[in-house]
């Protein structure tokens, strides 16, 4: 299982693109926003937490279809499915490596981009905390979506359509934490709810992912 995780990380680093692509996309989205809404600092500061969350979410979405599609193409997915690894564990590992290569860089880059968006100084801590708590859920949910669409050629668009509604609770609670944090309000309730959503998805969705993966391999 750890071997699979290490292999996926190694592949993401070596294959180029995969690793930095989400990050670059995040940067571009954030850079584009002031062009669209105007350079007014007060406005940018107000919308910063939400925009940063939406940007991170879209950047996560970008690399989802790579989770299983590459392994499917070269036949490794069949071989992994016939190996002694439990498929549930495979799905959890896939989500983990997706998070490490996509979610974690986003969490680390978010404060820098917050600077570009003139995020108020109280907001940085809670932005990072909310992203650190929320992005694992995005990866796990995304893995489920990727497992659903693995058998479909050019399933990228469908994947987005399926996954985005599932992202709603995470986005709401995550952005709520970041927003309340930036305006200096209490964040405990939102934080607990965000953590709850993440825990539930992490606990349950790998089983659903494994189930649909099995159906797709038949």
């Amino acid at each position: 299982m750890i071997a699979l995780f290490l292999r996926d990380i190694r592949l993401a680093v070596r294959a180029g693109g995969g690793f930095g692509l989400g990050l670059a996309f995040f940067l571009i989205v954030i850079v584009l926003v002031p062009f669209a809404v105007g350079p007014e600092t007060a406005l940018l500061a107000r919308i910063a937490p939400g925009i940063l969350w939406v940007g991170a979410l879209l950047a996560c979405l970008l690399s989802l279809d790579r989770i299983f599609a590459l392994d499917r193409e070269d036949g490794s997915l069949d071989l992994i499915a016939t190996s002694p690894l439990p498929l549930e564990g495979v799905c959890a590992m896939k989500a983990l490596s997706h998070w490490v290569t996509t979610g974690l860089p986003l969490v680390i880059a978010a404060p820098v981009l917050g600077l570009l968006m003139s995020l108020p100084s109280e907001g940085y801590l809670w932005l990072v905390v909310s992203l650190a708590l929320g992005t694992p859920a995005l990866s796990v949910i995304g893995t489920f979506g990727a497992a659903l669409t693995v058998g479909i050629k050019r399933g990228g668009l469908l994947l987005s359509l399926l996954v985005l509604p599932l992202y709603v609770p995470t986005l709401i609670f995550g952005a709520e934490v970041a927003r309340a944090g930036a305006t200096g309000l209490a964040v405990e309730t939102q934080l607990v709810l965000l953590a709850a959503v993440t825990c539930v998805t992490m606990a349950l969705l790998p089983f659903a992912s494994a189930a649909v993966l099995r159906m797709n391999l038949r």
């Binding site: 292999r7 592949l11 392994d71 193409e73 070269d74 036949g75 490794s76 997915l77 069949d78 071989l79 992994i80 016939t82």
Partner: peptide
Amino acid sequence: YAGHADGIK
């Protein structure tokens, strides 16, 4: 099992 594709990275 070994199928048509080799599963090589």
